[in-house]
Amino acid sequence: MAILETQELTYTYSVGTPFEKTAVDHVSLSIEEGEMIGVIGHTGSGKSTLIQHFNGLLTPSSGKVILDGRDIWADKKKIRDVRFKVGLVFQYPEYQIFEETVYRDIAFGPKNMGLSDTEIKRRVLETANDIGLPEELLERSPFELSGGQKRRVAIAGVMAMEPRVLILDEPAAGLDPAGRELIFSHIRAYHRRTGNTTLIVSHSMEDVASFADRILVMNQGKVFCFDETEKVFARAEEITKIGLDVPQITKVFLELKRRGFDFGKEVYTVDSAKELILRRLSERKGL
């Protein structure tokens, strides 16, 4: 069953002023439980506005958001429960850190949920482990940590709420390649352990291509396409036309195809590329 669904979701900013803008335009989509989804779109495509509807931070101008078969706005008083079920990590989440110790900052969300101290402790320790924060850091002030560590503290703060749907908006923005890989591998590990639904927003395909089950491409407030990763990359050329970048390895294979080497398959990870080329080479030797 779909865990999260939108029906004709529309959101307009600054209605009635010269700055009026429709950021999300009649979006209908449905996300299954346990999926890992990449949300792609360039700046201003409406992806950040869209995800803020999923946990009820923004109220739709029209249309519906349905979580677990229930319209999240059916009962306004229960919107906080929605936020516990759908965890949202904003861009540059390290700027929301405020507590005196790392432990207390990660515990802020679970504490708001009204959990018992032992349960909070279990969750903080578990998520700190998932995200790769050593235990001795937990009693330090978060403001003394490095940028990458702060980022992980902030992400752990949302993960510790154990939401059924975890949404991360550009979790690796501004980190170096090693830091990016680290964050993504921790998110994947958490996803595997808990089996939750995860959405990763990014403006770069490269980040999500290798592990997303499905990819949602947003363009000018509308769904450009929402399909399995392979099928999305079958439209690589259209995607480049709307100003999005496809992984470098896909570009190499598009160029190879243009020059007469058709591998008959969309390639978006280096590993699969290696395999395809090796196979083709051994076939040739066989001839």
Partner: peptide, 16 residues
């Protein structure tokens, strides 16, 4: 606005 949204996402009660 951003910080408020981020804390609300963590269940902080600001408007209510």
């Amino acid at each position: 606005d951003k910080i408020m949204s981020a804390q609300k996402a963590r269940g902080a009660e600001i408007d209510s």
